[in-house]
């Protein structure tokens, strides 16, 4: 779809992001800033599946929000397909919006409680002027393994995993170039998980989708991702190809992560 020849879909240089710490806001004057991302540099080549792992609160979701420009970085730069989007105002971002999507970590809060599922999936489609949004929404439901009848339900009438798949359906229906998936399979059983992951893999292979995949499940990451980024307290502690990372983890934090994975085996020593 894109006509430019940049080999990297995303190029991130020394990305910094700080947010106002409202808990320490003095009565008058501005709140102190809380530094969340402390100078990240990495690239996401086209067609790659990048795994992002890291401790809770290490800044993964914040990084995701910066990549789709829900948050404005306080330093460094983000280039999307060769174009600097670091400080692009919302009006200039608009034409790009269709090309990068985010699937949110908290499924319930990312679905409008007073819209029906069908409308939730179809809304972005009609915003970008795609034909037949309703039909495409139903097809997206098929893709994530939910019955079409769910289109008339409200989000609170679904189970947790079903909601999570609505978020996935909404993002893939747009056929974007890039999806940031924030913890999207944690609430799914292995079967639905496999279905969703196989779907994403197909999209990557056949439609040239690029994917950043935030997850705590290293088994899934190992299976799916080509590269892995390990984040710790807002810094990248390791950025390696998947086989290398599992064979020979460099950072001590990565080794801690690998040791803590519970295997489905009561005999595993897990102290």
């Amino acid at each position: 779809m894109s006509e430019s020849y940049a080999p990297n879909l995303y190029q991130i240089d020394n990305l910094r992001l700080s947010l106002a710490d409202m808990t320490k806001k003095p009565l008058v004057g501005a709140a102190p800033r809380l530094e969340i991302l402390k100078g990240l540099s990495f690239t996401i080549p086209k067609g790659e599946i990048l795994g992002i792992v890291g401790g809770s609160g290490s800044g993964k979701s914040t990084l995701g929000r910066a990549l789709v420009r829900l948050l404005e970085p306080s330093g460094g730069s983000i280039k999307f397909d060769g174009k600097d989007i670091t400080h692009l105002p919302e009006t200039d971002l608009h034409p790009l919006r269709r090309r990068f999507q985010m699937i949110f970590q908290d499924p319930m809060s990312s679905l409008n409680p007073r819209h029906r599922v069908g409308a939730i999936i179809a809304a972005p489609l009609s915003l970008h002027g795609l034909s037949n949004p309703r039909q495409r929404a139903l097809e997206a439901l098929d893709h994530v393994g939910l019955p079409r009848g769910f289109a008339t339900r409200y989000p609170h009438e679904l189970s947790g995993g079903q909601r999570q798949r609505i978020g996935i359906a909404r993002a893939i229906a747009l056929k974007p170039d890039f999806i940031l998936a924030d913890e999207i399979v944690s609430g799914l059983d292995v079967s639905s998980q496999a279905q969703v992951l196989n779907l994403l893999e197909t999209l990557v292979k056949d439609l040239g989708l690029t994917l950043a995949f935030i997850s705590h499940d290293l088994s899934v990451i190992r299976r799916l991702c080509t590269r892995i980024l390990v984040l710790h307290r807002g810094e990248i502690v390791e950025n390696a190809a998947t086989p290398a990372l599992f064979a020979n983890p460099q950072a001590s934090y990565t080794r801690d992560l690998l040791d803590a994975i519970p295997l489905p085996d009561p005999k595993q020593v897990w102290a």
Partner: peptide, 24 residues
Amino acid sequence: ALLAATPKYTDPDGSLTPVPDAVV
């Protein structure tokens, strides 16, 4: 089938197989 379909990080080639249709 559920147990068999559970991915393990120690097994890099284990493909993501859903619970087989016949079992479902």
